[in-house]
């Protein structure tokens, strides 16, 4: 699964987040990397337990949870507190797969990492390199999205951030456990929802065929969902 959602954060929200990030203290990104990823990761992060990181994380979560496109694609059950990073010139994160399970040090909550998301906080013209590259079912895809947009992808897909060669790349990233564990099932439900949303303005919400399709949608979630 690979989906981009535009304008999860408005320009004003992006400016606010960047302002807080710029005033905050940073640490090496190795602090949240697994044994394998540590070898291949070079960037800076806001310390996950810092007040700045937590506060901005709440801000990002608030925006995500009111984004119908994000909810429809991710069908989130539990979202790990968002983290914030910066790739300066020479920084990179080589090809890796995210850990399957993550625990949060503050809350003790554990999630199975079904999906990963990168929220871009720098515009593409602010830096060279720094593409998010994801190996998906139909091949490798590169992302360098406008600030405020998010890329959502299967955490089990190998992915990397290409070395930054000019400027700096600011981003937030997060992991989540979906109510629908399997990618194929989740993609199917997302396609069904997109069809229903597309038909609703044409036929009206009260249309009997749409009501039937909405029934199928909810019954599929009932069939596969973990709650």
């Amino acid at each position: 699964m690979l989906i981009c959602v535009q304008k999860v954060l408005s320009r004003d929200q992006v400016s606010h987040v960047r302002g807080v990030m710029e005033a905050a203290k940073w640490e090496s990104g190795a602090s949240t990397a697994g044994a394998n990823s540590e070898q291949v990761k070079r960037n800076q992060q806001l310390p996950p337990d810092s007040e700045a990181s937590r506060r901005l994380g709440e801000h990002v979560l608030g925006a995500l949870l009111v984004s119908p496109a994000f909810i429809s694609a991710a069908i989130p059950l539990r979202i790990f507190p968002p983290l914030f990073n910066r790739y300066a010139v020479g920084d990179h994160f080589d090809m890796h797969v995210d850990n399957a399970v993550r625990g949060d040090t503050l809350t003790g909550a554990r999630i199975r990492v079904d999906l990963a998301a990168t929220l871009f906080l720098s515009d593409p013209d602010e830096y060279d390199g720094g593409e998010l590259v994801v190996d998906d079912v139909y091949g490798s895809r590169e992302f360098k999205l406008p600030a405020g947009d998010i890329a959502l992808y299967t955490a089990g897909s190998p992915h990397m951030v290409a070395p930054v060669t000019r400027g700096a790349r600011l981003a937030s990233f997060l992991w989540l456990q979906s109510m629908i564990r399997h990618d194929e099932a989740r993609s199917l439900i997302c396609d069904l929802d997109a069809s229903i949303q597309g038909l609703a303005p044409r036929l009206g919400r009260d249309d009997p065929d749409l009501r039937r399709l909405a029934g199928v949608y909810h019954n599929l979630i009932r069939y596969w969902g973990e709650a």
Binding site: E184, L188, D191, L192, A194, S195, G198, L199, R202, L213
Partner: peptide, 11 residues
């Protein structure tokens, strides 16, 4: 929309 729904059905 029908094409997309048909794909969901077959999948």
């Amino acid at each position: 929309a029908c094409v997309r729904l048909t794909a969901v059905y077959h999948n």
